[in-house]
């Protein structure tokens, strides 16, 4: 059963052009020209109840614009959105009761007040019954360890604590849908892990539908079965994560600095794709060969001064998907036309 339905969603913005140079500056005093930016061009997808979907794309791809339209903050320029049967921008307040929202970089809590007070205010704003409030607070306190800092003003919390408080706050009113915008950004490894465990747990136990945007490959791998990949306002891929992971997620890049060399570097099951004054970028598939395997090959002919292994960023995966497509693996699901 689809709980979120998005069809041919579109959003355009007008952006002022900035003139350069002295004359341009003078001209800008009087007149300014605009051009249209298509933040979201034509996106359709549906999400079933209880699903956890990674909504992914590089910066400026249209991720947060889509989320804003799903939460009723923005009105689309075209297409339709339905969240739990409600059109968010037509009935924002009713929609607000159905959703929980966490923006990783901006807290929704009252900055100067002890954390508990934010919860109490949100209880009033969302009209949460007293018993339900207490139950939820007990659960969240237990899983998230809120009691460590419940009386500390929000501004004094560590980022990890603040994120825990923020996510608990977004769930106080038992929303069936949760939007998480970069929920692990800036967190250390332990805090990230804790966050992920919690998200998994509430998704499973409360059957909450989760839409997640992130730059962290780990987040997606651990949390989502499905991902919607967008770029330049369009859907590039919509399907199982395993497929993308198999195809691209196992590619690693090894960067090595080598000492003066006479013999060219030749490698098996790995390729040098960039070279710059003694520094080599080497691409290999984790499944075909391990990093140490590549390094062993190099040390047979060269001396390594320094090395790092880079994991693929979402950006590079997407750009590779663009370059190479899904040939031989799976075609991206074509955007549905009609209904």
């Amino acid at each position: 059963m689809a709980i979120i339905e998005v069809e041919h969603l579109m959003k355009e913005f007008k952006i002022a052009k900035r003139e350069t140079g002295f004359l341009g500056a003078m001209k800008g005093l009087v007149k300014r020209e605009f051009h249209t930016k298509h933040a979201v061009k034509d996106i359709s997808f549906t999400v079933d109840k209880g699903e956890m979907v990674g909504y992914i794309g590089p910066n400026g791809a249209g991720k947060s614009t889509t989320i804003k339209m799903l939460t009723g903050i923005l009105v689309p320029s075209g297409g339709t959105v339905k969240v739990n049967g409600i059109v968010p921008y037509e009935n924002r307040q009713a929609n607000a009761k159905n959703i929980g929202v966490v923006f990783g970089q901006r807290t929704q809590l009252w900055w100067d007040l002890p954390t508990i007070e934010s919860f109490e205010l949100l209880k009033e704003i969302y009209q949460v019954s007293h018993s339900r409030y207490k139950e939820n607070m007990d659960t969240f306190t237990e899983i998230l360890g809120l009691d460590e800092f419940i009386n500390t003003p929000v501004r004094q919390l560590s980022l990890g604590q603040r994120m825990r408080a923020d996510i608990a706050a977004s769930l106080l009113h038992d929303p069936p849908i949760l939007f998480l915008d970069e929920p692990t950004i800036g967190l250390d490894v332990v805090a990230k892990e804790r966050m992920r465990t919690f998200i998994k747990e509430i998704n499973k136990e409360r059957d909450i539908t989760v839409i997640l945007t992130t730059h962290d490959m780990e987040d997606i791998e651990q949390l989502c079965q499905r991902m919607v990949l967008i770029d330049h306002g369009q859907k590039v891929y919509d399907g199982e994560i395993a497929v993308v992971k198999n195809r691209f997620g196992k590619i690693r890049t090894l960067v090595v600095d080598l000492e003066q060399h006479s013999t060219p570097l030749t490698l098996e099951k790995a390729e040098v794709f960039k070279e710059e004054t003694g520094r080599y970028w080497i691409r290999f598939n984790r499944e075909d060969i391990s990093a140490s395997g590549v390094i062993t090959q190099i040390t047979q002919t060269h001396n390594i001064k320094d090395l790092t292994v880079e994991e693929p960023e979402i950006e590079s995966i997407i750009s590779r998907i663009y370059q190479e497509g899904f040939d031989g693996v799976e075609q991206p699901i074509p955007v549905k036309s009609g209904s």
């Binding site: 002295f22 003078m26 800008g28 005093l29």
Partner: peptide, 11 residues
């Protein structure tokens, strides 16, 4: 000088 030109509203 050039920077203030950008902020036409200020002027």
């Amino acid at each position: 000088f050039l920077r203030s030109a950008v902020y036409r509203f200020d002027v």
